[in-house]
Design a protein around this nucleic acid. Sequence first.
DNA 1: GTGAAAGCGCTAACAG
DNA 2: CTGTTAGCGCTTTCAC
Lengths: 349, 349
Amino acid sequence: MSNNSQITLDDIAKKLNVTKVTVSKALRDHPDIGTKTKERVKKTAFDLGYMPNYIARNLSNKKSYTIGLVVPKIAHNFFASAIESIYNIAYKNNYEIIITVSQESAEQEARHIQSLLSMRVDGLLVSVTEETKDTDIFKKVQNMNIPLVFFDRTIEDIGFSCVSTADWKGAYQVVECAISQGYRKIAHLAGYSHTSIGKHRQEGYISALKDHGIDVNQNLIIEGGFAESDGYEGFLKLYNNGISPEIVFAVTFPVALGVFIAAEELGLEIPDDVDVISFGGSSYNRFIKPSITYVNQPSVEIGEKSIELLLYEIEHPQNRGRKNIAIESKLIYGQTCIKKSTGILLNKK
Amino acid sequence: MSNNSQITLDDIAKKLNVTKVTVSKALRDHPDIGTKTKERVKKTAFDLGYMPNYIARNLSNKKSYTIGLVVPKIAHNFFASAIESIYNIAYKNNYEIIITVSQESAEQEARHIQSLLSMRVDGLLVSVTEETKDTDIFKKVQNMNIPLVFFDRTIEDIGFSCVSTADWKGAYQVVECAISQGYRKIAHLAGYSHTSIGKHRQEGYISALKDHGIDVNQNLIIEGGFAESDGYEGFLKLYNNGISPEIVFAVTFPVALGVFIAAEELGLEIPDDVDVISFGGSSYNRFIKPSITYVNQPSVEIGEKSIELLLYEIEHPQNRGRKNIAIESKLIYGQTCIKKSTGILLNKK
DNA sequence: GTGAAAGCGCTAACAG
DNA sequence: CTGTTAGCGCTTTCAC
């Protein structure tokens, strides 16, 4: 029925003239307790509106059923979708998610991880900021023996497991697609090369060019962040340097959108005056004109694999870290990157 | 420097031949403790790599510095953006956010609130599902004396504070805009009328029609959920009923996108064959062709106001609930809802 | 089957 | 200024 606040085990124990131990066990269906007692306990617990106090339980158990999540941003298609899938799996396994947002600041990221450690989360899932270089805080995580899995944006070689897109391959694929369409002057609005995804995508881009006998021109590569504004500024920088590429390979979908804005400002039509392809898409892409040809980032799968791996590592302390999962991406054809000569869609089904 | 795991106050107390109380106070800069002692304590705490255990602290304090958030969905522009702004304010005030997603299921919503109560969050921020009718769980929250603020999708009249968009007014405005452009046969893909936003937006739509002498035709109103699929199905339903509206007022932005898909499937051009306006937009709207004319939902402001209100209520137990904040929205002009006769943009600046 | 005792790590109240 | 005592609510031995 109804009740006031904060009922404890003791309250319901007194009401039944038993001890709180009995109540605790009964509520958890411990075999010690008889069926009739269990029922009586459960009934009065319900009547009193008892709500277990997880804080007390966690302190006693040294286990919080809680996972800390650190992402650079939420309002971004990839992360929103990854978070949602992480969340679903966690929920099924009775874990709660504590979310923190680093806002691309390495300092905030470190502070968040500290808090999460202090909250004694059972594990950590992190996608690092675009400026993270210092790994001290991660060493601390290691020392505390808390499992951690990096996803999407990773730090390799420091011992933690990683789940990411097959970045090199995806970049290679989409750039190769541009080449096959007759493009030669292919610019790259790249991510900082100290980030895992920035580096691998750029390497994929370079390999694709080389394999097709195209010279790599450093002037066509602009490094920057992963946001729309970075795409905007990057393209203007290219333009102001007097460089007009036939097509731009954007390191992320927001960066591609930044190019759209810059192009419009400069009076350039996409895809006629300058074309665009990107790594990663969005559910909104189908509504954009022209819709962008991109290699997809399997956000749901990345989310799922990373949380599954983390849950595994939580339960298998002897088998933690050093696993690397790369998820294959595939090319999604839109209305950009169409054969220059014929104007025929490459492969629209 | 480095260390193993789980250092406690006692560990560092022993090392210094003091008691853990002294250490606890020193670490918290309690005035009791002398400067030199504080420094010694802090130094060895740092050297040992001490990380406070918030679980223990919270149990002792009966305060968790934690806020529970319940939303129907994350991967949706409005919520992602609101969450991010909520998060920012919480962070500045040293609160952590525990996020849960109800996935539009009232049952999951209730389960989540239970968990959050058991975790002893200091307050709750919730945007209800499209199917929430039962208010039992919220009564429980009241009984436990935990402050709660509804945002965007609210339940009025049960005593909790609410922060929402001025739904009635916004709907009125955008529908009036359509009328002023010469539209008369205006359909409404409405939200369920048992939801706050569904009801108020529909009322705004109806008032606008009435005030301009247009008969309200129930066949032009289809109630449903708030997702893209609902827009898709809703429009097909209209169409299959032999109704072809001049313009559709969608209860949310995703619903408007659903109309885009349905229209394309039916071979109808937007805005020529059928036009679209909506409540709520998206940062992607500018890239969509035609971009939609809509009344904006100030997600950032709603997020901020609701968390601020919640923090206020956490600290002022004697002044909780029953506050209603409605945030004004404004019309954002896109490429839809343009004067039928002239084809001239209404007000594009 | 049930309960008494002890402890998880920290903090508040009071005493010295 | 520092320490002693007690307790937050729950769980885990280990007796009875």
